[in-house]
Design a protein around this nucleic acid. Structure first.
Lengths: 317, 317
DNA sequence: GTATTTTGGTTAATCGATTAACTGATGAAG
DNA sequence: CTTCATCAGTTAATCGATTAACCAAAATAC
């Protein structure tokens, strides 16, 4: 009573001070386990990631969740699964046994998932994933907004013939980025199919080949929007081999803004950033809100993808 | 008693089965908080990282610690600090209040540190760091071994004129890699100082300039050992600009084996891998050992750095 | 001057699991 | 047939904090 502010006026100010002094002298620290047993609150949040937790790509998601949690006096209890369903359920169980106050379910990349039934009534927020029916709170990147953002960089510089290199992998990001680009190109009165290259993996090597094809066409585009930064790396290489310099002969924009690629390429790559840090923060704030008031309706949030402007865009020749 | 194996023969096999069946039916899960209060063991390990926890670079360290912990029924409670001393102490305190069984202190890169006094008698293992006096268990990469490994790739292919591009930043890794390389070059009867370039930051851009200088020398080396993969990226670019092809005209080896760089470069870069995953595992195993037997002497471990062989080495012209 | 509140503190129950100590019945030993 | 050990269960204390319920003394109201 003396140490906590709660139970306020049950103790005199002078006695309170004496108790506090004694506690300080003895180096007393409250035992959170005992407190948790009594209050049924552990001030811990479970973070379940399918490989995300320890993958370079989305470390910022943990960072964001961690920071927001810390500010509210919570700690993160992390479990990384390989995305396997059984493993995820086991992870959730392990966290529930430890009486975590809520769970963050994070995925490696933006996708639609179902919340495992074992979650029961444990408050839960989806990170970089959403449910089909909106039954759980979730936050995902605003891929459409980000795509419009980088395309605006190009159109703003005067480009209309904007190519796109995407992957055939069936992911949410591909679908949205592709559709948004198509819309934009069609709005310029061009046929998107003349400017589209599909490769079977969004990595440098296939992108390199794809880019060689795209840039060898008689009416090659003056700018390329790449599905991601690794694809952009392949485009840079292809451009160099064809004697095209970036951005003078070819403007390039991309998505993801990966810290080891986009700023390191020469010239620096203009790329729409995946707001992992912000999503992590948002998810915790939302989770805490739901802890306070479990009755409120779940929220689906789209996090803006800011454009990191660098030097890969200039007006067409 | 029926559920745990302990307290063994206090209960009949038939009753035990009945209890278990009832527990399963009710979906009973033990409350780890209550158990922890009684047993004074929470089956949780604190992971304190100075920015490491959520930095792409060393995610594998967490992954390794996480996996080893999981296998032993432990979970990781993570706190990321900015390396600040006060913040680290606060983090340790927060973990101690939560009665974690032990602490892993991880640093961003290999360095010598002091164990904060607040750690008290909490069992603790250093990850990617060590103490000057060996008073705590620790694990760091075997930089010397890794350097010898990649240099052996070069000498094995017939190179003797092996250049080195390093940073002037004062880190443990620089000192060991540099000294080992000097030794090796001197053993070939050459003067290391003729083959050494120092740049003020181990990133692509300064490395690019440094490489241009090194490779423009009349007696340019036939191979380069780079301080890290980002430096190697700069070397690749410089070589391309000078019309030198890798590996035919110039062999390149490096350190760190970063997953987004070394395998993505063309040709793939031969690089000594920092064994983050293995170090993470080792640290947990060592911590658990110390939990079982707090009396055993602390151990300083050097984790081997295996060479990831790719296509950036061939015999000199 | 008596009745009622307020103040400042104290007691004891509780959270859920572990575990030492105890009890009765059965079986074995002498 | 008595004694003692073993087996199978039951009771109750404990871990450390929270909190409802009590209680005595002082302050205030009427």
């Amino acid at each position: 009573m003396a140490l906590n502010e709660t139970g306020g006026r049950r103790i005199g100010p002078e006695t309170r001070e004496r108790v506090r002094a004694a506690a300080a002298e003895l180096g007393y620290r409250p035992n959170t386990v005992a407190r948790g047993l009594r209050t049924r609150r552990t001030q811990m949040i479970g973070f379940v990631g399918d490989d995300v937790a320890t993958t370079p790509f989305a470390g910022q998601m943990i960072r964001g969740a961690h920071d927001a949690a810390r500010e509210a006096g919570f700690l993160l209890l992390m479990i990384d699964t390989s995305g396997d369903k059984a493993e995820t359920e086991e992870a959730i169980g392990a966290l529930q046994e430890r009486q975590i106050d809520g769970i963050l379910l994070a995925t490696m990349y933006h996708q639609v998932v179902e919340v495992p039934a074992v979650i029961g009534s444990t408050p839960c927020v989806l990170l970089d994933a959403r449910t089909a029916d909106g039954s759980a709170s979730s936050v995902v990147p605003d891929e459409r907004g980000g795509t419009l953002g980088v395309l605006a960089e190009l159109t703003g510089a005067g480009h209309t013939r904007i190519g796109h290199i995407t992957t055939t992998e069936d992911v949410e990001a591909r679908a949205i980025r592709l559709a948004t680009w198509r819309e934009r190109v069609a709005a310029n009165g061009l046929d998107p199919d003349d400017l589209l290259i599909e490769i079977d993996q969004a990595t440098t090597r296939p992108a390199h080949e794809g880019a060689l094809r795209l840039l060898s066409r008689p009416d090659r585009p003056t700018a390329v929007f790449c599905f991601n930064d690794r694809v952009a790396m392949g485009v840079y290489r292809a451009a160099a081999e064809l004697g095209l310099s970036v951005p003078e002969d070819l403007s390039v924009v991309s998505y993801d803004d990966q810290e080891l690629i986009a700023p390191e390429l020469q010239p620096g790559l203009t790329s729409a950033a995946l707001p992992h840090y912000q999503m992590g923060r948002w998810a915790v704030v939302e989770l805490l809100r739901r802890l306070d008031d479990p009755e409120t309706a779940p929220v689906q949030h789209l996090m803006p993808c800011p454009v990191a402007k660098r030097d890969s865009v200039s007006p067409p020749r």
